[in-house]
Design a protein around this nucleic acid. Structure first.
Lengths: 133, 133
DNA sequence: CCGTATCCTTGCTGATACTG
DNA sequence: CAGTATCAGCAAGGATACGG
């Protein structure tokens, strides 16, 4: 990885060999804002830049552009430019992006099943005080 | 999330409602260093602080401590302190952390299947030049 | 409407040193 | 050994403002 092209995904912090075989996918799919964007595109279908911005609610146009560009380059979304006045640009999920659906479903299922355990573990940990010197 | 306790996982950037139902899990499982740590604990079993540090290779003790503390609080790993001289501390995956295994497997499968498409999409995008004004 | 340009702040990182 | 403390450096993210 880290070819000659402008690939600002994340420098991976120069991991030596491959301590974790899923790191590439994690950087690809779970970078900041990618899951909300993919989710919204999946829920509401093809939509415009401002719709995405408004639905996410807390993202700035700069960052949204960055993320969408990267996701377009990675083949997860498709950008369509309509040369009109005013200009119109629409984004939609690509087939490749759609292939992540089962993964997201697994994630949602785990969430449903085990997130309460996480909450319990947290209160448990907090009640127990310092973890030992 | 973001309760009263010291849980600086990520402030989630104050997302309004719930633009993406899997965001909590993403913050939990795919924060920086968590997947390498979980992977190493899964591969090599229970091990000590320095072993983890050496195997990851590029992490400082400070950050490793931060990450391990948070994962312990979230119930993903278990920390065992042996009061000896020299002191010995061992970390291992908890059952909750182990319940992530199928998720990781799904991730690895997707990686195997679709990562080449990502690479292709990237070269394609880079060859095609500017994305249109 | 769809972005880009500019600044600013945050948080990770890195190096070093120091306890128990 | 297993951390904690401190400080400097950098890059990503956020806020604001402006242009095509």
């Amino acid at each position: 990885m880290a070819s000659t092209a402008p690939s600002p995904a994340r420098p991976a912090a120069k991991v030596p060999a491959e301590p974790c075989p899923i790191s590439p996918v994690v950087d690809l799919v779970f970078s900041r804002w990618t899951t909300p964007i993919l989710w919204l595109l999946h829920e509401h279908g093809r939509q415009r830049f401002v719709e995405l911005q408004r639905r996410i609610g807390t993202i700035t146009p700069k960052v949204l552009t960055q993320r969408l560009r990267q996701m377009e380059r990675d083949g997860l979304v498709v950008r369509t430019y309509h040369p009109e006045v005013p200009p119109r640009v629409e984004y939609e999920i690509s087939p490749l992006g759609l292939s992540l659906a089962p993964l997201f479903r697994t994630l949602a299922e785990w969430s449903q099943t085990h997130l309460p355990e996480v909450a319990a573990a947290r209160t448990d940990y907090d009640d127990r005080g310092q973890p030992m010197p």
